[in-house]
Amino acid sequence: MTYETRRRLRLVLLYTTLVTVTVVICFPLAWALVTSVKPNDEMLRLPPTFLPERLTADHYRALLTGRAMYFEAATGYRPKTAPPQHFLAWFFNSVVVSVGTTVISVGVSTLAAYSLTRFSFPGQRFFSYFSLMGYMVPSVIFVFPLFLLMARLGLTDRLPSLVLGYISITLPFCLWLMWAFFRGIPLEVEEAGLIDGASRLQVFWQIVLPLALPGIIATSIFSFVVSWNDYLIARIFMNSISQLPLTVGVMHFFEGVHVDWGLMMASAVLMTLPLSILFMLVQRHLIVGFGAGAVKG
């Protein structure tokens, strides 16, 4: 076998693998997207159609306007809880909880990690090991103690309980991530700032934070994804249908024996959108801005 054929074979193998992996990962998403724009009568037809014969926005309209008339028109069946009218509320809840969790865990972990790397105080070592331990314990273990705590605080079935619950999961990892980032920022750069005439706070805002930006973005994405995708904690903490986040809310489209696949798939697409947009916005920042060049090497 010549070098050239071997090279080609390797390329073919590589691309086959890549295409397979991409298809496997993307198929469910594509299927959800396709199904979400199929009319109900086409959706479960056998053999299935991949591309819809007729496009419809009914499912999206139902979710976004909260009107379920088309249910009755299409099926003659009117569900008791009529879930679509809560979709926007669930969406809003998810956004509030995820943004709240992200802002608090990134803010707290950034400050805590900075103080862990730059100042020495009694119990420092204990504190860092202890927080790392929290990161090692599976989150399921925390759920029931947390629930009892929230109940005692009178927070169950309210959004702040979710924010607090998610923070307890995200914070140790965020802290750990930011800690690693701050350790990568050379102390001399800060000292240069101090000598240049900046106060400690100015150094933190104008020098340290911009350098830690990739870390801040990484931790933000992590906290946002964790809180946006959580099912377990929300399932246990929340009760009222209007207070649910998306993940738990859309389960109401499973109505006894009737599953409204159209609403389900449209919800899935709408749920994926914010994360996709977030990733597209920040992925550039994840790689630029690293502290290369400040220090030799």
Partner: peptide, 16 residues
């Protein structure tokens, strides 16, 4: 910052 000194560091410590 109150001493009005300037320092050149071994690794330069430029703001990256």
């Amino acid at each position: 910052r109150d001493r009005n000194v300037a320092m050149v560091f071994q690794n330069y410590a430029l703001y990256p």
